[in-house]
């Protein structure tokens, strides 16, 4: 049953993957100017020999119908061939994978910290509904949603690096060069990402917990004579964590944008930093690769969330 469910979800993804790849394919073709020159990485007015020009034009297959070009391009993508980076002269996939590890630390660290803030915070806000604590949590949510990330990051640098001098302002240190150094560099970027994500997760966690608290199974648990603490922190929390997982999954697409901004404020060498660098050096092969990578990361995480859901809650599989 589970295998059938997973297979069904995979089939349902096909149209989405087609749309996503088509959007990227056509967006990449709105580059003003001659794509042949762009792919050659030519500066304006540079002399390009006709042979080189024609060879590139033939290699790009620009003489063929658009739909054939798209299918061909799609097949390359499926095989993991994102093309060669214009600046680095190596496969774009390698360039991206090389930058992936720092981003993974940032994303995972950010989500873990966000959940650590949002789940207890949301539960406390729901249990103590309409008290000082609840208002504080609501204020946190509103600030987390409204304060622009890049500005929050700068203020964090200003306070913790410039004035207090507790942490390094920018940069990244790989863990093999010392764990302390690594964590020091990671702390501010991760916190900025986490605060932003936590605001949204906390809001849904609180809402869902409030709704769960009035359901029949909670009354049954209380009627059995279980302590209030056990009812809330075990039975209700366990059920409302399903919502948390979904919300975190839905945040994945947003998270890529967030990480892009944060990495650029902190000069943090991940794929978001790579994206901006490639835009400035007009390396559109890498730009395309990073955008595709981010979209597919979000789609894959949501697929995993769906499957996880089906594993945890058998009712889903029969819907």
């Amino acid at each position: 049953m589970l295998i059938r469910y997973v297979a069904m979800r995979l089939v349902q993804l096909i149209p989405m993957v087609l749309v996503v790849t088509m959007v990227v394919f056509f967006v990449m073709r709105i580059i003003p100017g001659d794509p042949v020159l762009v792919m050659l990485g030519a500066v304006e007015g540079a002399a390009i020999s006709e042979d080189v020009y024609n060879a590139m034009r033939l290699r790009l297959g620009l003489d063929r119908p658009l739909i054939v070009q798209y299918l061909d391009w799609l097949w390359d993508m499926v095989r993991g061939d994102l093309g060669a980076s214009i600046t680095y002269r190596v496969p774009a996939l390698d360039v991206i994978l090389h930058r992936l590890v720092p981003t993974a630390y940032l994303m995972v660290g950010g989500v873990v910290m966000a959940v650590a803030i949002a789940v207890p915070g949301g539960v406390l806000a729901a249990i103590h509904n309409n008290t000082k604590w609840d208002h504080f949590a609501t204020g946190f949510v509103i600030l987390g949603i409204t304060v622009p990330t890049f500005w929050l990051a700068l203020v964090a640098i200003l306070v913790f690096a410039v004035y207090l001098g507790w942490l390094p302002a920018i940069g990244y240190a790989p863990p093999r060069e010392g764990v302390v150094e690594f964590l020091q560099h990671l702390f501010l970027p991760v916190t900025v990402v986490a605060l932003n994500v936590a605001a949204t997760v906390l809001r849904f966690q609180r809402q869902d917990f409030l709704e769960q608290m009035n359901l029949d199974y909670v009354r049954t648990a209380r009627a059995k004579g279980l302590s209030e603490r056990l009812v809330l922190w075990k039975h209700v929390l366990r059920n409302s964590l399903m919502t948390t997982v979904t919300v975190v999954g839905l945040q994945m697409a947003y998270l890529s944008g967030l990480v892009t901004v944060v990495e650029n404020v902190f000069n943090y060498p991940g794929i978001g930093f790579l994206l901006l660098n490639s835009i400035h050096t007009r390396d559109f092969v890498v730009v395309q690769g990073v955008v595709l990578f981010m979209v597919f990361l979000a789609i894959a995480v949501n697929l995993v969330v769906d499957v996880l859901y089906a594993v945890l809650d058998p009712r889903i599989r029969y819907r």
């Binding site: 149209p15 989405m16 087609l18 749309v19 996503v20 088509m22 959007v23 697409a253 947003y254 998270l255 890529s256 944008g257 967030l258 892009t260 901004v261 994206l275 990073v290 955008v291 981010m294 979209v295 979000a298 789609i299």
Partner: peptide, 10 residues
């Protein structure tokens, strides 16, 4: 659905 899968900022 396809468009919604994109990070809007990116």
């Amino acid at each position: 659905e396809g468009i919604m899968a994109f990070p809007s900022l990116v």
